[in-house]
Each structure stands twice: as C-alpha cells, then as structure tokens.
Design a protein around this nucleic acid. Structure first.
Lengths: 142, 142
DNA sequence: AAAATTAGTTACTTTTAGTAACCTAGTTTT
DNA sequence: AAAACTAGGTTACTAAAAGTAACTAATTTT
C-alpha cells in the first residue's frame, strides 16, 4: 500500500477548508451540492452508464442495457431520465419503425466524466488493496 | 455553461480506452473495481463521512452523526463498519466510561479522499447548472 | 399468420434505507 | 439510594427503492 505524503494531505485539507467554508453540509437537498448533485450522478448504475457513454459516443437503449450488465429495463429507464433531466446526457428519438432512441453525453456530461474517470482509475489501481483489506477484516470479525 | 475542449475529450477517451481494455465491466463484483470498490465508497452517506473525516482528522460516533446531518444510528454504524472493512478508516475504542470510540481516515482513505474532493469541487462548481437543467426539464416533462 | 424487433411500462417481490425505542454500565444529580 | 444522563451502538418495525418478469406498440421478416 503506497503512502500519501504529508504535503498532499495539507493540500487536500486546504481544499476542504475552502469548500466547507462556504458550503453548509447540514443543508438539505437544495443548497448542498454533495447531497444533491452527487447523489444522482454517483450511484452505481449512473457511473457505469456515464462511463460507457464516454467510451461509445452514441448508444441506444438496448446497447446500454447489454453493456451495463445486470441492469433492468426499469432501472435503466429511470436512470436515463434522471441523467437527462440533470443535463448529463441527451436523448434523441427518431420516429422510425421500430423507434430508434439514441443517448449521448452532453458537454456537461463530458465535464463530469473527466472527474469520474479519475476516480475510476483510482479504483482500478487500488482494487487489490480493498479486496485484501476486506478479507483481512472478515477474518478479524468472525 | 462552459464548454469542454475537443482536446480534453480526446484525453479522456484515451484513458477510457486504456481502462476498458483490461477491465471487463461485465464481470460481476469480484473482478470489477467500478462495481465493487466504488459501489461502497461512493454512496451518498459514505462520501459525506469521508469528507468530514478529511476535514476533522478524528471524530467520534456521535460527532459524525451530528455533522452528517440526517443519517441514522443504524446506517451510520453500517457504513462505518464497511468503510473500516475496506480499509478507508480506522476505529479505535478506548475502554473509558462511557466508552470513547474514535474514527479516522487511514492513508488509504486519504488517497481516496484526494480524488473524491475533486469530484466534490466539480459538484460545487456546477450545482447551479444541474439545478437549472433540472427545472427546465421538469417544465418540458409536465 | 406467427415471430421478431425496439424502447420502454406495469404489477409484483425482495432488498435496502429510515424511524424510534431500547441496551449496557458507570457517573452525576436529586 | 433512586433517577437520570452519557456514549456507542443494536433491534424490531415501516417505508422506500431496486430487481423480476411479463406485457405493450407498430411494423417487418419468416
């Protein structure tokens, strides 16, 4: 497990100070970006949807469903509506038969993707660490 | 709404290509960092807990409960156990009377916090955008 | 004429989240 | 000496969210 320098910790502390200074996390939904904005865009399915739409510029409903393995029609449909509503992606329907519906990230969505991808890279880099931690902990618990 | 350059999009696309190349997102929990690692550390309560433990180096159970406004004993207790289990934080119990239990981020937790804070900064910067998108969309829907 | 296609929706079940009362046990207040 | 308070939870119960599976529309293919 690689260590984090004190320098880096100080930097993060400064950022937090700045953030916590003008953000009141006690506020309920409306005023709090962490609770409101992130709650929608950081749930497990939304993350996968956004990542796939980052990788494949345009995807149709059933294509997303195949890629985001395990998601149900119902939940996919819900997530897509919310993500569209918050401006992360755009839905375009072509009135062909059968209908064709395409989803793609907006510029706003791409902006979010930029940050998300870093978090995902981190997760990819540290997955073994989490898994070994988890196994060790289960041993202690039992 | 500020735009994202094509250059930035290309960078992100490269990162995604690299990631998707050696990660199979179709895998269920064990092999997939996005589903497994992130599902735990990116739910709404965990994010808040980690951010507060970044701002306040050491917090006790009831202190976290006050700061992470609205969380219940049950869910806080569950989240803390999971976050401890995955190695993000450390729990130390002092057998005083009444007992004192302290939580603090591990170095691993700090490493995650570094990425998380960037996502949170993004959310803070773009909250107005999300809210205006949302209102506009609700108008269209109804 | 039956079957397949797309993008969902609906009714139902299971899992997860949230609420509120309770526990332990020593310490302070009455 | 009995009552109330403390910290850090747990427990039983209810509400909300997620997951399952069958169904819909209109048209084209078999």
């Amino acid at each position: 497990m690689e260590t984090i320098t004190e320098n880096q910790k100080v930097k993060v502390a400064k950022k937090l100070k700045k953030m916590f200074g003008h953000v009141d996390l006690r506020d309920t939904t409306l005023a709090c970006p962490v609770r409101d904005v992130m709650a929608l865009a950081s749930d497990k399915w939304s993350i996968l949807i956004i990542l796939y739409l980052g990788y494949f510029p345009v995807l149709r409903f059933n294509q997303i469903k195949k890629k985001v393995y395990g998601i149900s029609n119902k939940v996919l449909s819900e997530r897509l509506k919310h993500l569209e509503g918050d401006g992360y992606l755009k839905r375009t329907m072509y009135p062909e038969v059968p209908v064709r519906v395409e989803y793609k990230l907006t510029d706003f969505g791409h902006s979010y993707l930029q940050k998300l991808i870093e978090l995902t890279e981190w997760a990819e880099m540290h997955k073994e660490c989490v898994i070994s931690n988890r196994n060790r902990f289960q041993g202690v618990e039992a």
